[in-house]
Simulated assay, not measured.
Amino acid sequence: MAVPQFQHLAGRVWVCPGDPDPEAVQAGVAVVADERGSVLIDAGQSPTHAREIQAALTAAGLPQPRWLVYTHHHWDHVWGACAWPGVEIVGHETAVPLLRTEAARPWSHHYLDEQVRANPRLGPSFRARARAMDSWADFAVLPPTRTFADVDELPVGVGLRHVGGGHAPDSTIVLVPDSGVMLLGDCYYPPPAHLRRPDDGLDLVLVRRLLQDDYLWYVSSHAEPMTAEQARSAVETT
């Protein structure tokens, strides 16, 4: 696995890709760098991953975050949150009960094994969780502390918009208009593998609704950033 590194995308936006191996289930993260307080988009898939991201921030000379935005509640986007002290966690209001339920589960390698035996369809996700977690000491699943219903804007000009969709009910996109960047999370992906039906696919109708002339970059969590031209081509030819 490569050491995480931040790459400048445009304006204030830097991206740190996740692991390209799909079995790792490691989402990328992004940061909107601002001297008034940076915004981190997603927390990393584990405390270890979060600490690697922190080291990558330092190596790139980027400010530490003041806000942590969840694009949605899935584990590979939020399990690193407990390793980010002092940040305000921001997410859609529907994430709160979902993550409170997750927080109450007795997470451990033994528990993960039990769950996979009971439901083998959980295998890819839960085995990836087991690999990601070196230790369960001090681990906690953290719900957002600042929530919104439809739209929100952080004091540094970063916008949040709830879009929902089949992948997760709380899916949120992050808008950085001064940099021409839209961060999509996993919003147009099909449901997680253990919930997916044979006819579930990418929600290109949602993507078409999101495309705007004044955004030059579209970034999802498990793929390379797309230019506006690439994004339009993808939805027009599929």
Results as ranks from 00 to 15, higher is better:
L9F: 10
H109Q: 03
V235H: 01
F139Y: 08
D134E: 15
R127E: 15
M1V: 13
P63A: 10
D138P: 02
V96Q: 09
Q7R: 15
V15R: 15
S135W: 06
P177S: 15
R131I: 06
L204D: 06
N119Q: 11
D76H: 09
P198F: 07
G123T: 07
Q54E: 01
A130C: 08
S179I: 02
V90A: 08
W14C: 12
M226F: 00
I173W: 08
V235D: 01
V176N: 04
V39E: 04
G166E: 02
A193Y: 13
R127T: 14
E224H: 00
W217V: 03
T172V: 15
F126I: 02
W217S: 12
A234K: 11
T94V: 15
S220C: 12
V15I: 14
W75R: 05
A55M: 11
G91R: 00
G123L: 15
G157E: 09
H194N: 14
Y188E: 04
T94F: 02
D42G: 09
A95F: 00
D34C: 13
A223W: 00
W14K: 08
A231T: 12
G180K: 11
E52H: 03
M226T: 07
E23A: 14
V116C: 07
R208F: 04
R196T: 06
P47K: 05
V207Y: 00
E52T: 00
G165Y: 09
T147H: 00
A128C: 08
L68M: 03
L160H: 05
E93Q: 10
G123R: 15
L154N: 01
D200H: 03
Q7I: 11
R232E: 03
